[in-house]
Amino acid sequence: MRLKWKTKEALIGYLFASPIILSIIVFTIYPIFAAFYYSFTDYNPLNARNLEVTFNPQESLEFHLGFFQNEVKSIDEIKDYFDLMTFIKSDVGINLDTKKENIIKDYFDTNKLLKDFIAGKLNKEMKISDFMSIYLKKGSSAFKHYIPNFLGLENFKKMFKDQYFKISLFNAFFYSIIVVPVQTFLAIVLAVAANSKIKGIKFFKATFFIPAITSSAAISMIFWMIYSRPGILNRLLSIFGFQPIAWLENPNTALPAIMIMNIWTTAGYFMVTFLAGLQDIPTSIYEAARIDGASPSKIFWRITVPMLRPQILFVMIMGTIGCMQVFDQIYFLIKNMRNITISYYIYKNAFEYGNMGYASALALVLFAIILFITILQRKFIHEEY
């Protein structure tokens, strides 16, 4: 049966869109579900490839026993020097939990291993998973692929006892509460200034927007030089008799210093959003207000700001998401744990501590918080005036 034209058109459309659909599935949807799953486990990325590592069993046994293979004639000579659990953990390099330890104690064929060692059969490279499948009488499936242990809600319970989780979450909230309103208001002011009909306005537009397109790493390094003890800021303050301050090393000043930098870099970016909104406001409204004798301040607060409500909502939502997820500036400039944010703490758990399961739980909590704040913003800040 011939396909209808609409069906053909839909199939062709999906065919052309398939690269984008697959990219979204692989790089967006799958990571979300994976993070949700890992948040209930003790997943450790350092252990994920552990069983695929190759090693030489003979060399490992020689190192463990203190004997070369050609020196040993019988098992009785070496059995007193062989400790199974130490060999598996330290010399083979397998991270064991209680379940796997019990499997090894019950089913590992030590005699076969030592006989093969004496016979010279172990002088070859092999994967750890293959080695375990050869010498385990039963339960070798537990060592074929890495499967994290299911912990249930343990990762989430752990947060209530984790002081750094509380500190990092408080810092993220504090950061957002200060930065979002200030950067939003400053972006509106910059947009109003950029929308003015004055000479050289194109130069000022470009100047305001440059920080938004500059590398975050480069900006962080520039501000590191500004905030350092011999930096420009301390030199300027020394003129007025102030002593040099280590702005980024002092926990009381480090986070506010980062806030100032973030406001400076993002206000110009959001200025473009408000500039587009200003150009949609009919000039007749401003002309009528001026004829009625309205002052510039009243025009700004009674006309400009209310008419920009859709843009304000968008900027506040995007600004909140960005501030709650702030990472790069903290990573580059903060050197103490009292000023870390939740995104940086997720990074440390995942890639420095190897606690990917706990990091996934933290990420899930952060996602829930951002979603809740976004819903509240949409509920209490209406787009229409």
Rank of each mutant, 00 (worst) to 15 (best):
Y286Q: 08
I88S: 00
Y30T: 10
Y358D: 01
D91G: 07
N252Y: 04
K124G: 03
A363C: 07
A276D: 01
W301T: 15
L313A: 09
A368W: 00
S297H: 05
F131N: 01
V26C: 10
G293F: 06
N339P: 05
K205L: 03
P181Q: 03
S215E: 06
T214W: 12
M271I: 11
P230A: 06
I78T: 08
I78W: 05
I299A: 05
M356F: 03
K157D: 07
F223C: 01
K144Y: 07
N149C: 02
I198P: 02
E287H: 07
Y38E: 01
Y14I: 15
Y107F: 15
I299P: 02
S238R: 05
A17S: 14
V192P: 01
F185C: 02
K99H: 11
M318L: 08
K205N: 09
D280F: 03
D42A: 01
G241E: 09
S228T: 15
Q163W: 02
Y345K: 04
I334F: 00
F173R: 01
K6N: 12
A187N: 02
P296Q: 05
N44C: 10
F270E: 09
S216H: 01
M85W: 01
Y30F: 14
F170I: 12
S215W: 03
V92Y: 08
L96M: 02
G268N: 05
W264K: 04
R309K: 15
D83C: 09
F300L: 14
T184Q: 00
F174W: 06
F33V: 07
R235G: 15
F63L: 14
I346P: 00
F208I: 05
N262F: 01
R302C: 10
D280E: 15
Y38H: 11
A350Q: 06
L255T: 00
S39I: 03
S295D: 12
L61Y: 10
I303T: 11
G139C: 06
N349Y: 03
Y331K: 11
D280N: 15
F16C: 11
S176T: 11
F68H: 15
V92F: 03
F314H: 12
P251M: 02
T341D: 01
F351D: 04
L255R: 00
K100Q: 13
